[in-house]
Structures are given as C-alpha cells and as structure tokens.
C-alpha cells in the first residue's frame, strides 16, 4: 500500500511538467519543492532533535546571499555554489555552537536572535548586500552543459535535488547516528549516562539541518535569480516552522505536505485578500488548538477515529 502510494506520487512528480502545461503553475510547483527541502532541513532539528529553531531563514539566506554576491562580482557558477555551501556550513556551525549553549526555550530564543543578526546584515550592510534592493544574478547555472533557463528543466533539476535530500534524510534518520539523535530528544539524561556525547550529536544535527537549508536557499536564488533581505525575515523562519509543524514533525513526508499546503495557501490567499499574515497567524493558533501533532498525524488520527466509529456501528447493527 505504502509502496504503491510512493510510486504513484513519484510518477506524478516526474510527469508534473506534462500535466501542468503552464509555466506559472510549474514555477509554483518548483517553489513547493524548494520549500519542502527547506522544511525538511528544519525538520531534522525540530522533529528529530526536538530543538525548535526560528533562525533558519538566516541559514537559508546565507546560502543564497553568498552565491549571489560571488556571481554578481563575476565568479564562476561552480565556485559560487561550492563557496555558498561552505559558508553555510561554517555559519551553521557558529549558530549551533552559540545556540547549543542552552536547551529548550533558551535555545529557541538564541536562534531568534541569530536569525535577526543575519537579517540585519542583509538589510543594513548596504555596501556588501545591496540592502533592501537585494542582489540580482545574470543566469541560472548550466550543469553538464544543460541549460536550466526554462521552467521545465529547472523543475527537473530541483526535483533531483529534492529526491536526493529526501533520500539522504531517510538514510540519516535510520542510521545509528539518527537513532541516537532521537534518543537525545526523548531521553537526554539517559543518553548521557549511556556514554553518548549529547552535545556533539545535536551539533551535527544542527549543521546538517543548516546545510539542507542552505541548499534550499541556493535553489531559491537560482529560481528567482534574485535575493533580498525578505528571505531572511522572522516571517520566513516562521513560515518554514509552520510547514514543519503543520505537516507533522519527525516524519519524512510531513514537511513535504506542509510545504505544499503553506505555499498553495499563500498563493490562493494572496490572490483574494491582502491579509496573508493575518491568515498565517490564525493558522498557527488553530493548529495548536485543534491538531497539535500536525496535519498528517492529526488527519490519520481523525480518520482512524471515524473508521473505528464506523466499524463499531456496523458491529452494533
């Protein structure tokens, strides 16, 4: 059952450019994939490590800005991408080192502050980042000589990265390190007593999470050929967190569903009303009140409840 569903959804993804014969909607589909990568990166930390971060837009932005800055100052695509990944890794390590001085609520507060620093640099350090005007780049990269200028080839390129990230996260969470990461989330004291280095495991998870976020940032730069401080804002971090939590944390599929819902909602709501932030805020409150475990597990729970109610009724009649 699960395998069939997986095969069907993969097939749908692969055929999406044929099914969606409109570059506007295809671009939105690409954006869903990029958001899903970002959300999956955040999920590594929020879901599997149990550490809520609200500074990940900063890491997303560092990836995008590094590449944009290098490309705009004339460096090659490969060097720009490689350095963007490198700088994101280094920044994630610094973020992780500082934020892991605390756990729980303190950790969360520090990530907010760090994310705001990144935003402040992008917004105010005008000679470096162009301030509110952002940075534009001339063209998307052309790996192996394949042009990604069109909507369809870029969708496939994003899809490949998306699948690679999903695969990597799946392997990671099943690996001994991934299992011990969940251990540090549920029973940090016991893990320490068992001889695990809880700090190091969390540190690694944070850096990996930052890496995936940076990759998403890089892809987002390629898609829009533009980056501005807006991508680092507190609101952007909050949207990513909403994707993770609405989909259901610590599941492989949750962040993907969450990303699809949030991006789709954003486009639909913005088309009718200007009040996206009001809706976003209301969704946050509603999810906490009605589906605290997220939409995917929450729907499964409701579905089971309905079904068991149905079978009971049958048994009675």
């Amino acid at each position: 059952m699960k395998r069939i569903a997986l095969a069907v959804s993969l097939l749908l993804l692969a055929l999406a450019p044929l099914l969606i014969d409109n570059s506007y909607y295809l671009n939105i589909a690409t954006q869903v994939l990029i958001s899903a990568i970002f959300a999956q990166g955040l999920n590594l930390l929020v879901g599997y490590a149990g550490l809520v971060s609200l500074g990940h837009a900063g890491l997303f932005g560092v990836g995008a800005y590094t590449a944009a800055f290098l490309l705009a100052s004339g460096s090659g695509q490969v060097a720009a991408a490689a350095l963007a990944i490198g700088v994101t890794l280094a920044t994630s390590a610094v973020f992780a080192f500082l934020a892991l001085r605390a756990t729980g609520i303190g950790f969360f507060m520090i990530t907010v502050a760090l994310g705001q620093i990144a935003w402040g640099i992008a917004y105010r350090w005008i000679s470096l980042t162009g301030g509110d005007n952002g940075i534009s780049i001339a063209a998307r990269p052309a790996p192996f000589g394949i042009s990604l200028a069109g909507a369809t080839p870029f969708f496939y390129a994003t899809l490949i990265v998306f699948l690679a990230v999903q695969g990597a996260v799946a392997v990671f969470t099943r690996s001994p390190l991934g299992v011990s990461l969940r251990g540090t989330r549920d029973q940090p004291r016991r893990m320490t007593a068992l001889g695990f280095n809880v700090w190091l495991i969390r540190f690694i998870a944070f850096v990996l999470s930052g890496l995936v976020s940076g990759i998403a940032g890089l892809l987002s730069l390629y898609q829009t050929k533009f980056v501005s401080p807006h991508v680092l804002s507190l609101g952007a971090s909050a949207e990513a967190l909403l994707m993770v939590i609405s989909g259901g944390t610590a599941t492989l599929l949750g962040p993907v569903v969450g990303a699809a819902i949030v991006v789709a909602m954003k486009y639909i709501v913005s088309a009718y009303v200007e009040r996206w932030n009001l809706v976003l805020g209301a969704i946050f409150v509603a999810i906490v009140l009605f589906m605290p475990e997220g939409l995917v597990p929450g729907s499964v729970r409701l579905w089971r409840k309905l079904r068991s109610a149905g079978t009971k009724r049958e048994a009675v009649s």
Binding site: L54, G235, A238, L241, L242, I245, N277, L278, L280, G281, A282, I283, F284, V285, I287, V288
Partner: peptide, 8 residues
C-alpha cells in the same frame, strides 16, 4: 507557535 501567530 501561538504567541508568534498572535503577533502576526
């Protein structure tokens, strides 16, 4: 989530 949602 709730306090952030309310602030938005």
């Amino acid at each position: 989530l709730v306090t952030l949602g309310l602030s938005f």
